[in-house]
Design a binder for these strands. Structure first.
Lengths: 206, 206
DNA sequence: TAGATTGTTAATCGATTAACAATC
DNA sequence: TAGATTGTTAATCGATTAACAATC
């Protein structure tokens, strides 16, 4: 919490640690060293120790890290210990897939509204939710205190959806559309475009 | 092509440039400077010039880059000028969404086989393809010269699917499952786990 | 020509890794 | 205690940015 200035690279590794720690907990493993973590996550142990040390002293010299304790600490750091509501815009194939994504259901991070522009999509049931008109977004963001928006509309619509999200009070965006969004600097954006990933992979083939 | 050693960061930016150049071409814009690219992609112009200069001299001093020519060159670099067949394993919601992903259809990068372990999924039609048994993967990889595998199975299955893909001759993996896969060092892997992205986004909220 | 913009070298900045004292 | 492992400083490595000569 008393953080000098943590780089994004560090923050992006924390969920990876968290995920593996949760796996260890399922295996009833109670303690782990940075060396073991490094082996399994294919990372340098010094980097793992350094990443964690930005936020506090979570380990014990000569012993390692308590799995359960470290899970709790990382959750605190990432703010996954409190409820965080998410809206998804674009009820197509990908949007539907994400809405049904199992892992969200258990977690504090939860999709609480699905929106679409097209009337043929509106009213459609996806899991426990009904697709709503995009016109309702702003109202629902306020009502449900939605903080994060997921964009799964076509590239041509993405910027206007992002603008609407930000006007509505959303504080961060996960963007699946293949465009670089223009947003104010205080709004974090994560791009998760599949095509980009595949295309960069192509380079390494052969 | 006569490349000293290009960092992954550079390679990952090329598809972003490509995408924006294709957008410019659609707008009938024929020439662009690194400065304009930088403005629109929120990047440093020097970085863009340097990235491109690893692969050749594509611009003209005092003028900028020819959009069409640069598109072709980047496609060549990324090997998107030749056909590259892709197999997808896991015909759930996400797998179905990706298989229907419009952009793949036009491109050289093409999903040519969809596989699943579960008999209730097998035979199901997704776009022009029918879901096949996972047992057929190896055979099809050889028959269709499939080079890339996309994994959209649950975390618990992902490693064994990756192993099977590699044994079958697949050369690169795009992994949507929330695990770090163990693969030989010569096999490139891209992780595209949505949960990880969302969790790192949570850190920046409030 | 004058203005613009590349390609590239040099300078800066930041991130990763090694090393080790502290200590369980 | 002896062995193991953390937290952290220092060293290394790599990536980004600035600057500018070349040139369209």
């Amino acid at each position: 919490m008393k953080t000098p200035k943590i780089s994004e690279a560090v923050i992006r590794r924390l969920p990876v640690y968290l995920r593996y720690l949760q796996y260890l907990r399922e295996m009833n493993i109670t303690t782990v060293s940075s060396h073991e973590l490094g082996q399994n996550l294919d990372m340098n142990p010094a980097q793992i120790r350094k990443d964690l040390a930005y936020f506090g002293e979570f380990g014990r010299k000569g012993i390692g890290y308590d799995v359960q304790y470290l899970i709790e600490k990382i959750k605190q750091i990432l703010k996954l210990d409190r409820r965080l509501n998410v809206a998804l815009v674009g009820a197509g194939n990908l949007g539907t897939a994400l809405s049904n994504y199992r892992r969200f259901t258990n977690e504090k991070l939860k999709i609480v509204g699905i929106f679409d522009k097209f009337s043929e999509k509106i009213g459609k049931k996806i899991g426990p939710l009904q697709v709503q008109s995009l016109d309702k977004l702003s109202e629902m963001v306020k009502e449900l205190d939605i903080k994060i928006g997921i964009i799964t509309v076509p590239a041509s619509e993405a910027q206007s959806v992002a603008d609407l999200m930000i006007r509505s009070g959303i504080k961060g965006i996960l963007n699946f559309a293949p465009v670089i969004l223009k947003v104010p600097p205080e709004i974090p954006v994560r791009n998760a475009d599949v095509t980009t990933e595949l295309e960069s992979l192509a380079y390494y083939i052969e």
